[in-house]
Amino acid sequence: MAIKKQFLKSKPVCKVTFTVPAANANQVTVAGNWNEWNTEVEPLKKLKNGTFKGTVNLKAGQAYEFKYVVDGQWENEVEADAYVWSDYAATDNSVIKL
């Protein structure tokens, strides 16, 4: 798994590209507090090499909690900037700091 951050000079926005290796998966999405944890909003596109990839524009200067949903299973990003405990899910969430 990987995260790439590209800060725009013209706007206070960061293009965040999420990459998830999941060759055997049918669907991967990213859900976080920016999209109200909606598992339908941010689907990642499956590439020929078996990874899923997608880009989300997020406001710079903030931190966001998120998880991947791989065929219905919630997973953390191993390269997250931090992890924070979620009482709702009773587990850690990944954190990306922009």
Rank of each mutant, 00 (worst) to 15 (best):
V28K: 06
N24L: 06
Q73H: 07
T39V: 14
Q62N: 15
D81N: 14
W85A: 01
N38A: 06
L44N: 08
A90I: 11
E79T: 15
N93T: 00
K48V: 12
V70D: 08
K45F: 07
V28Q: 09
Y88T: 15
L98W: 12
A80T: 06
N57V: 06
A2W: 00
N49V: 05
K11P: 05
D87L: 07
K48C: 06
T19N: 10
T39W: 07
V30N: 00
K46T: 11
E79P: 03
M1N: 01
K67Y: 07
A82F: 09
N26S: 15
I3V: 15
K46Q: 13
A2Q: 01
D87P: 07
S86A: 00
K9I: 09
W85N: 02
T39S: 10
A2N: 03
K46F: 09
L98G: 15
N57L: 12
F7G: 07
V56T: 03
P12F: 06
T91V: 07
I3T: 15
E77R: 00
N38M: 04
L98A: 10
V28F: 07
N33H: 04
L47H: 05
N38K: 05
V84E: 11
V16F: 07
T19F: 06
V95M: 00
I96H: 02
A89H: 13
V30C: 03
V20T: 05
V84A: 09
V41M: 10
V16W: 04
L44R: 08
G72K: 10
K48S: 15
T19P: 05
A31M: 11
N35H: 03
W85L: 01
K5T: 03
K4Q: 14
N24A: 10
V84N: 05
A31F: 03
K53R: 14
P12W: 05
W34G: 00
F18T: 04
K97I: 15
C14H: 09
P21L: 10
E36S: 12
K45R: 10
D81H: 13
K48F: 08
L58R: 06
E75T: 14
W74R: 09
E79L: 13
I3G: 09
S94I: 03
F18Q: 02
A22R: 00
V20N: 02
S94A: 10
V56M: 01
W37C: 12
T91H: 10
K59Y: 10
L58A: 09
A90R: 15
I3P: 04
V41N: 05
E40A: 12
E77V: 02
T17F: 04
E40V: 07
L47M: 09
Q73E: 14
W74I: 08
F18D: 01
V84K: 08
A90H: 15
K5P: 02
T17L: 04
N33L: 04
L44D: 07
Q6L: 14
A60S: 13
